[in-house]
């Protein structure tokens, strides 16, 4: 059996040769690790890689190619994001060719000046139960054993969110890397009178993160794009996970697993209390 990487390259090449898609969004090797790449020529398909450093969800890039037929490489969580986006009318399923790759978890990024040694599986991957995208046109099986997953830590210990949020620079990397933050103008930025000011006021960071958290409840697929992009490593996915759990208990809804089930906030039921 060939490695997933070889299979991925072969598939991308043939899709581009047959002109089934205009471009394939995948990952390529870079000097500092792995980065997104956009391939439109069949012979460029050799650049594609697949390894546990492929952490940034590529789904956020789909909104830049609305007129094109796009092949996209997705992990389990990214596939769930696509399901949610289709339900929110943000994505045309017919113009998207979904290449699902079985995911064994991704590594936590090692950021500038880190003194930690060795690679660690990301915390959000420890909780993950959907390793293959629920929606796909092609499946590439993994040949390696799943990365060793420590048993999920007990989240009982509450985090000091206030001091975590105080570290925030409001660089918007969490917003910009998120598959779901597709608003052309973020409600946090474009509000008048300003809900959150242009310049960072430490007090408002809490407003900013809570507003964002509320928008993510019942939608977040815990792909960790925000958390891994964050320069100060605020464990945002943990916050959104809590909200998702609450959402599941209250509405029996898990985002991104079932294309048929409508998201509860989009459904009006008679007699429903606000």
């Amino acid at each position: 059996m060939s490695s997933p990487e070889t299979e991925l390259r072969r598939l991308a090449r043939s899709l581009l040769e047959k002109k089934a898609v205009d471009l394939v969004i995948g990952y390529e090797k870079s000097e500092a690790g792995v980065r997104p790449c956009f391939i439109s020529e069949p012979n460029e398909a050799e650049r594609l890689v697949w390894n546990p450093d492929c952490r940034l969800s590529l789904v956020r890039y789909l909104r830049g190619f609305k007129e094109k037929r796009v092949g996209i490489i997705v992990k389990g969580c990214d596939g769930r994001a696509i399901v949610e986006l289709i339900k929110e009318n943000q994505l045309d399923r017919r113009s998207t060719f979904i290449i699902a790759v079985e995911c064994n978890g991704v590594y936590k990024p090692v950021k500038y000046g880190s003194s930690k040694l060795g690679r660690q599986i990301a915390e959000y991957c420890e909780k993950c139960e959907v390793r293959i995208s629920p929606i796909r046109d092609h499946l590439i099986k993994s040949d390696v054993k799943a990365l060793e997953r420590p048993s999920p830590k007990n989240d009982g210990e509450p985090l000091d969110w206030l001091s975590l949020f105080r570290k925030c620079l409001r660089c918007m990397a969490c917003v910009r890397s998120c598959p779901f933050c597709y608003c052309t103008e973020c409600s946090i930025e474009g509000f008048k009178p300003a809900l959150v000011h242009k310049l960072v006021d430490p007090v408002e960071l809490f407003t900013f993160h809570l507003t964002r958290a509320l928008h993510m409840a019942g939608r977040c697929v815990e792909c960790g794009a925000c958390e891994s992009s964050c320069p100060v490593e605020i464990p945002l996915t943990r916050l959104y996970h809590e909200l998702n759990e609450w959402f599941r208990e209250k509405y029996g809804y898990v985002p991104g697993v079932n294309l048929e089930q409508a998201p509860p906030p989009l459904v009006f039921k008679e007699g429903e209390k606000p």
């Binding site: 660089c171 910009r176 992009s229």
Partner: peptide, 12 residues
């Protein structure tokens, strides 16, 4: 194409 338009590079 790659750039996600966050402000991280400038802020760091």
């Amino acid at each position: 194409q790659r750039c996600i338009e966050c402000s991280l590079c400038s802020f760091a």
